[in-house]
Design a protein around this nucleic acid. Structure first.
Length: 476
RNA sequence: CGGGGUAUGGCGCAGUUGGUAGCGCGCUUGUCUGGGGGGCAAGAGGCCGUGAGUUCAAGUCUCGCUACUCCGACCA
């Protein structure tokens, strides 16, 4: 399918959202498929988005007292068996190296699916005293999980992420850290990615293998499905006990630490695509867009057009904007469409007529609004426009999401809700059976525990008194 | 792991009752164009996934294999 056909076929993105997503991802040159099933090659345009995400997150982590470090890719299999729930949860999806150096290895090596085990082992060596706490480290790396079905960015065998791992002296402090990082993610998602998220505790069924509590942030995609966009786990002393992370406290007794971990991945790029994309392709929030302003010279064969475009480019670059001038020998219309598909927030068209009048055409990606701007006011306009687009994208997404949250008090109500592409808030008694019934009946899972139930509220499944109000949704 | 589908040029596809492959896009060259996916002209590019079988003859029919994909189950 060529691009022209593509645009036609995605005219109604809700019709086949998954297909729309896959096409956008490949056609905008974000990724290519790797030779190994389920792996993706992140191309420069896609990777640049990731770099922007990294930069913004890293600043936040450091402000929260975290330091970056790096731990090995290969983890001895025996490390995994130390924490029973953890190994049970991850064993099915761990890829294992059995041979190296031309011989079979004595002990198989796991390719990290997550690094709690190896980091825990190292922390145990490093931590002696309460004076060593807290330990707050983060690593940017790749991990591998052999999933059965994969989709670029959303679920790939190998993906890039950051994983923060912390150790604290007390339960309170560790829980505080868990929630603090969850809020860092929330603030980041909303202010940088322009994606509103719901945060809250996960149910037992949905929590991380080995954690005492998992908190997550869930974002609503354009088709009403939910995407888990980040998680923060409170491990209690589970891992500390398995890996002997102990410290000598002020009172002279040896105590186990309390650990947490938190992570977000390249899945966030998928979230951006599915939360903001429209029938013409990607729409990137200015704060993560690899190119914020694309300049398109029109009738460039005429004298002075390319020179003017260069002049504008340099002017904007001096102001710190990410700018590119597209001088390829193609018709302008074609370039318009291409850069729209790639989600560039602002487009500037400059041709002989404009130069004569001392103006340029400026078009914004989020609303397609096109205005004539005096060249002398261009920098100002672009600056305001980028801010406006960033804000508009968030408020648009918020309105879209809030209008798709409904309440239900029965299984049928939940089914009807998710069929209508909604998040459904419902009472839940807290038992696994009812949760499973909802999954079976409505293909919806508990995304987060929204709040404690009030007096008189009942479980939507069994009718017994509800423990919590939970957000149910179909999920990616 | 269960059920369905697909495999033909870089991409998307067509190929009739068997007769040695065609279309659109892209690509190359030239030219006119250029403010929303341009026009004209000339080109390049294919062991039809793979192994066997039926036949004078297989992209086409039969069987096996492999890969990919969709829907379930499983999961960030």
């Amino acid at each position: 399918m060529d691009d022209k056909q593509f645009v036609k076929e995605i005219a109604n993105i809700d019709e086949n959202f998954a297909g729309w997503y896959t096409d956008v991802v490949t056609k905008t040159e974000l990724v290519d498929y790797g030779p190994v099933k389920g792996t993706m090659v992140i191309r420069p345009y896609g990777y640049a988005i990731w770099e922007n995400i990294q930069k913004e997150l890293d600043a936040r982590f450091k402000a929260a007292g975290s330091q970056n470090a790096y731990f090995p890719l290969l983890i001895p299999m025996s490390y995994f068996t130390k924490e029973a729930e953890h190994v049970e949860g991850f064993a099915p999806e761990v890829a294992v190296v059995t041979h190296a150096g031309g011989a079979k290895l004595e002990e198989p090596l796991a390719i990290r699916p997550t690094s709690e085990t190896i980091i825990g082992t190292m922390y145990a060596k490093w931590i002696q005293s309460y004076r060593d706490l807290p330990v707050i480290m983060n690593q940017w790396c790749n991990v591998m999980r052999w999933e059965k079905t994969t989709r670029p960015f959303l679920r790939t065998s190998e993906f890039l992420w950051q994983e923060g791992h912390t150790v604290h002296a007390t339960e309170e402090e560790a829980m505080e850290e868990t929630l603090k990082m969850l809020n860092v993610y929330k603030e980041f998602a909303e202010n940088v990615l322009a994606i509103p998220v719901l945060t809250g505790r996960k149910t037992e069924k949905e929590k991380f293998a080995g954690a005492l509590a998992t908190f997550g942030m869930e974002a609503m995609m354009k088709d009403g499905k939910s995407l888990q966009a980040g998680t923060s786990h409170y491990m209690g002393q589970n891992f500390a006990k398995s890996f002997e992370i102990k410290y000598l406290d002020k009172d002279g007794t040896l105590k186990y630490g309390y650990t947490t971990s938190w992570g977000v991945s390249t899945r966030l790029i998928g979230a951006i695509i599915m939360a903001h994309g429209d029938e013409r392709g990607l729409v990137l929030p200015p704060k993560v867009a690899p190119i914020q302003v694309i300049i398109i010279p029109v009738a460039a064969h005429k004298g002075g057009v390319n020179e003017k475009a260069d002049e504008i480019e340099n002017l904007l670059k001096e102001q710190g904007f990410k700018v590119k001038t597209d001088k390829r020998d193609m018709t302008p219309g074609r370039k318009f469409n291409e850069w729209e598909m790639k989600g560039v927030p602002v487009r500037i068209e400059i041709g002989p007529r404009d130069i004569e009048n001392g103006v340029a055409m400026v078009c914004r990606r989020d609303t397609f609004e096109k205005t004539t701007v005096k060249l002398t006011e261009l920098c100002e306009t672009v600056k305001t426009l980028l801010d406006e687009i960033q804000n508009n994208m968030l408020s648009k997404a918020k309105i879209a999401r809030d209008s798709h949250i409904v309440e239900a008090d029965s299984l049928d109500g939940i089914l009807k809700g998710v069929d209508g592409q909604n998040f459904v808030k419902a009472g839940w008694c807290g038992c696994r059976e009812c949760e499973d019934k909802i999954k079976e009946y409505a293909q919806a899972t508990a995304r987060i525990i929204d709040s404690d139930a009030k007096e008189g509220e009942v479980c939507a499944v069994c009718g017994k008194p509800a423990k919590h109000k939970v957000i149910f949704a179909r999920a990616y």
